[in-house]
Design a protein around this nucleic acid. Structure first.
Length: 396
DNA sequence: CGTCCACAGGAATGACGGGCGG
DNA sequence: CCGCCCGTCATTCCTGTGGACG
């Protein structure tokens, strides 16, 4: 029996999981502990939809992993159960659909209108969406998740149109549920958009350590077979996640990965040691995935940052990094982009959470960004190594 | 207390690739 | 198939800015 067969046997024989889907981030359970008040508030706002009336637009905010998406999906699911097909619902993640065009294209898909992924003007796509919705002739509730990513990248023009779309509709109606991680988003918005989008607001505070334990406990009962979790596992997952602004998604990921590691090893129980391993795997996987899909020049910037940090410079300025980037470009024979463009790419890397880039002023020595790595050197190295062979020579 | 650095970030513009209508 | 229009990404040019220096 070779290594692969052994692994398969172990997983096959393992009795760790009862239903691992219950721990996935997109799983919406039937019970959301410590979010009862947010659920009731959203439900009461949405309630008019049952009689076909248009609910107010809602704005929901809170840090990542505070249950915003889960609450929105849960309440919409309950609504759907009640009204069946007389209300159309759409869920759009604006981090994935991060241009005005793609958001509109997704909305079109929800009303069964096909649009090509490029080639049309946004105005045309908007027109098709309106026609599509009008011919459905009913209420639509659209969830725009991570709306901050959309606004930062593409502005609020589309939100302006969507909030005023009811003026152009005769039979149909549109309500918007906006979700954001970033409270400062409101400052960037056009006041007209701001007021119509936040007719109602629902706030999601971070989970406390105790609340995270409850959440993990209730999900663990769904996901694991009885008795496979050692006593310290849930508290440890909760403690790690509580340190990161009470992020329940992180806590659930930790628990799931820890279980999968135990499963692969053929262990009968999930222990705190598995959680520690999971913590490392989680960061590395995330970083590697993100870096692999980055365009070449963004990776060159990261490589530059890596090389500089090897030389003992843990924080660098835009200028220093740009110099190193140009040097690397000439070594691999790539045409360097201008500093203006690199400035934007640095902004994008920051949005992705790979680097921290804070704008600082150093008096007569100018304004710049103070750039530091937000991930471990090891993870970055791993990500760069896996992403492109041409870069390998520069990582020892 | 004004200057002035070293960029940030907005605006205009162009190359490119893709869809559409004829 | 063609000419046209569009979104995306990049460049060029520009104005704005916060605080240490003199």
């Amino acid at each position: 029996m070779d290594e692969i067969d052994k692994l398969f046997e172990k997983v096959l024989e393992s009795n760790i999981f009862k239903n691992r889907e219950a721990l996935r981030p997109d799983h919406v359970p039937d019970y959301l502990p410590h979010r009862e008040s947010q659920i009731m508030k959203l439900a009461s706002i949405i309630a008019p939809a049952i009689k076909g009336a248009r609910p107010s637009n809602v704005f929901m905010y809170g840090k990542p992993g505070t249950g915003k998406t889960a609450v929105a999906k849960y309440v919409l699911r309950r609504l759907k159960d009640k009204v069946k097909d007389s209300v159309i619902t759409a869920y759009i993640n604006c981090r994935e659909a991060d241009t005005n065009y793609r958001v509109l294209a997704d909305l079109c898909a929800a009303v069964n209108v096909y649009v090509p992924f490029t080639g049309l003007s946004t105005a045309e796509v908007l027109r098709r969406f309106i026609n599509g919705l009008e011919s459905e002739g009913c209420l639509m509730i659209a969830v725009l998740d991570e709306i901050d990513a959309l606004v930062k990248k593409s502005g609020d023009a589309i939100l302006y149109h969507l909030t005023r779309i009811n003026e152009r509709l005769v039979k149909a109606r549109l309500s918007i549920i906006g979700i954001t991680n970033d409270l400062r988003l409101m400052e960037y918005l056009d006041p007209r958009v701001k007021s119509s989008l936040s007719e109602e607001e629902v706030v999601f505070p971070p989970y406390t350590y105790e609340e995270l334990k409850d959440i993990l406990q209730s999900r663990a009962e769904e996901a694991f077979n009885p008795g496979v979790l050692e006593d310290g596992v849930i508290p440890l997952c909760a403690a790690i996640a509580a340190r990161e602004h009470g992020d329940a998604r992180k806590a659930l990921d930790l628990l799931r990965i820890a279980g999968e590691i135990a499963e692969r090893n053929g262990d009968a129980k999930v222990t705190e040691h598995h959680v520690r391993l999971a913590q490392r795997e989680l960061e590395r996987d995330h970083v590697v995935d993100v870096i692999k899909t980055l365009p070449l020049h963004a990776r060159l910037i990261l490589l530059g940052l890596y090389v500089l940090s090897k030389d003992g410079k843990s924080t660098v300025t835009t200028g220093e990094l740009y110099g190193k980037y140009r040097e690397l470009c000439s070594k691999i024979g790539a045409d360097p982009l201008t500093q203006r463009r690199i400035s934007d790419l640095i902004g994008e890397l920051e949005l992705l959470g790979i680097i921290d880039a804070k704008v600082i002023s150093r008096g007569r020595y100018g304004r710049t960004r103070r750039i530091t790595l937000a991930i471990s050197n090891k993870s970055l190295k791993e990500g760069l190594l896996q992403s492109n062979i041409a870069l390998r020579g520069f990582i020892e």
